[in-house]
Design a protein around this nucleic acid. Structure first.
Lengths: 173, 173
DNA sequence: TATTGTTATACTCTATAACTATA
DNA sequence: TATAGTTATAGAGTATAACAATA
């Protein structure tokens, strides 16, 4: 057990916070006031990101793909013929840390490293047939279970607006 | 050096990605296509969150406060008389992990643990005078340097809308 | 001399089990 | 028996230095 671990986290659900006390007849502590915290960009952003990743993992449980692994498969599919350094740096992954990640995907026969003939230092990355099939299934799951959830919650217009604003922050903040 | 480490990260800036190649006159590899990735909620959310935290750390460099530490001080100020478990769980921090965090804040004389007289197992958390002063300065820095940046980028209406949508995701996704 | 992939390593976050002192 | 704070520990994620093969 090293590749799995699925989505069975417990963590600390802030929603459940300050509960977990037996209802004795005592002074009874109320839920805490978040105050200015609920208006702090970083706080709400981090909280939302954790929720979204949790949901992603649940949706992808059958395929055992993390958000990071999914992003690698997507990028390799969209950019055939690129090497490890290019894929990793585009995703903000440091090359040393990308090695174990690729070892994992390659051991599951989802992608392969191919020694470049032009530059024998480079490993060109490609999806295997299984990798393409898994990615196709993953895309459907993400679209129907994960991203659809966002539409339900915000509506299509707001969803688009949200993605746009987050992209702007990611690129220009 | 254990408390500091400031904000001097290098990481992998995706903006700089796929550059770092000398301009020889060769076929020249172009920037990669993000494709569907730029529409993936989790991807753009994570990217935005990292940028926002980086900016937060830069803005708070003079006070040496991380986003997590800032959230603790805010919550303790807003909810005097609460114990470690209550503050930690509200922030989604596990009690064991909260110990070192409080040790740090207490060693810097920003907050203090007070043994409760009602229940001698509990540590009531309070801000010290220095803690209150530092938090006041922190709030000003966040408002004028950090959150103001968001207003410049999106405008007040969009800023409000963004926070609202993120809160909804954090609470209901 | 510089770059690609890699190893080794370290530091932060997060997570769980179990101890202690109190209740 | 249960809870608050704590310790120890383990696992992810992320960071840097340095090495071998290749350019």
């Amino acid at each position: 057990m090293t590749v799995s671990k699925t989505a069975e986290k417990s963590s600390e659900k802030p929603a459940d916070a300050a509960k977990g006390r037996k209802d004795t007849g005592e002074p009874q502590a109320e839920a805490l006031q978040l105050g200015e915290l609920s208006e702090q960009l970083g706080y709400v952003l981090k909280r939302a990101q954790l929720k979204v990743f949790e949901n992603f993992l649940r949706c992808m449980a059958s395929l055992q793909l993390t958000p990071a692994q999914f992003s690698v498969l997507l990028l390799v599919e969209k950019n055939p013929g690129r090497n490890q350094t290019e894929i990793a740096s585009t995703l903000g992954i440091l090359r040393p840390n990308f090695v174990a990640m690729l070892d994992n995907l390659e051991s599951r026969d989802l992608c392969a490293r191919i020694r470049s003939t032009n530059d024998r230092r480079s490993h060109i990355l490609v999806l295997t047939d299984k990798g393409k099939a898994v990615l196709a299934r993953a895309k459907k799951l993400v679209a129907t279970k994960h991203e659809a959830r966002l539409n339900d919650l915000l509506g299509p217009a707001n969803r688009e607006s949200l993605i746009e604003m987050l992209s702007k922050i990611a690129n220009e903040f």
